[in-house]
Amino acid sequence: DWREIAKLAEEALKKQQPVTVNGQTFNDPNEIKKLLETAQKAI
Rank of each mutant, 00 (worst) to 15 (best):
I43T: 08
A39K: 02
A6W: 04
Q16R: 13
N30M: 12
N22L: 12
T25P: 06
A42T: 09
K15V: 10
A9R: 00
L35Y: 00
Q24R: 11
Q17I: 14
T38P: 03
T25I: 12
R3L: 15
V19Q: 01
N27F: 15
K33R: 15
W2F: 07
R3E: 15
R3Q: 15
V19Y: 00
Q17A: 10
L35K: 01
K33S: 10
F26P: 03
I43F: 00
I32S: 00
A6V: 14
P29V: 12
I43N: 06
V21C: 04
K34L: 13
D1F: 09
L35C: 03
D28Y: 08
D28Q: 02
F26C: 07
T20R: 10
P18F: 04
Q24E: 14
K14L: 13
E10V: 05
K15P: 02
E31M: 10
I5R: 01
K34D: 11
Q40P: 02
T20H: 09
F26A: 04
E37T: 07
Q17M: 13
A6G: 06
K41F: 00
P18K: 09
I32N: 02
T20F: 10
V19A: 07
Q17K: 11
E4C: 02
L8Q: 09
L13N: 03
N27Q: 13
E4V: 05
Q24I: 15
L8N: 08
E11L: 03
G23P: 01
A9V: 10
V19E: 01
E11R: 05
E4Q: 06
E10D: 10
A9S: 05
N27A: 06
P18R: 07
D1M: 04
V19N: 01
Q24T: 12
N27T: 09
I32Q: 02
Q24M: 15
Q40A: 10
T20S: 11
E31Y: 08
K14Q: 15
E37V: 05
E10K: 08
D28F: 03
R3F: 14
Q17P: 06
A12Q: 03
I5L: 08
T25S: 10
L13H: 05
K14T: 14
Q17G: 13
F26R: 04
A12R: 00
F26N: 03
E11W: 00
A42C: 11
D28C: 04
K34R: 11
E4I: 03
F26H: 07
N22E: 07
A6D: 02
A9W: 05
K33D: 05
N30D: 13
D28A: 01
A6K: 08
V19P: 01
A12P: 00
A12H: 03
K34N: 12
E37D: 14
R3V: 15
L35F: 01
K33I: 15
V19S: 02
E11Y: 00
E11A: 09
I5Q: 03
E31G: 05
K15G: 12
A9M: 11
D28G: 07
Q16T: 08
L35V: 07
G23F: 02
L13E: 02
I32H: 01
K15R: 12
K41Q: 12
E37S: 05
L35G: 01
L8I: 12
E31V: 10
Q24K: 14
A39V: 06
N22R: 10
V21K: 02
D1E: 06
T20G: 03
I43Y: 00
E37Q: 05
L8D: 06
T20E: 09
I43M: 06
L36I: 10
A39I: 11
I5S: 02
K34I: 14
R3D: 12
A9E: 01
A12K: 01
K41R: 13
E4R: 02
T20M: 10
T25H: 14
L8W: 07
D28T: 08
E11N: 09
E10M: 07
D1A: 05
N30C: 13
E4S: 03
Q40S: 11
N27K: 11
E4P: 04
A42F: 05
T20K: 10
N30I: 14
Q16S: 13
Q40D: 07
W2K: 04
I43G: 07
P18A: 13
D1N: 10
K33L: 14
L36R: 03
L35R: 01
A39E: 02
N30S: 14
K34T: 13
W2A: 07
T20N: 09
A42G: 08
L36E: 02
N22Q: 10
W2L: 07
A39L: 07
L36W: 09
P18L: 05
E11F: 00
D1H: 09
Q16H: 14
N27L: 13
D1C: 04
P18Q: 09
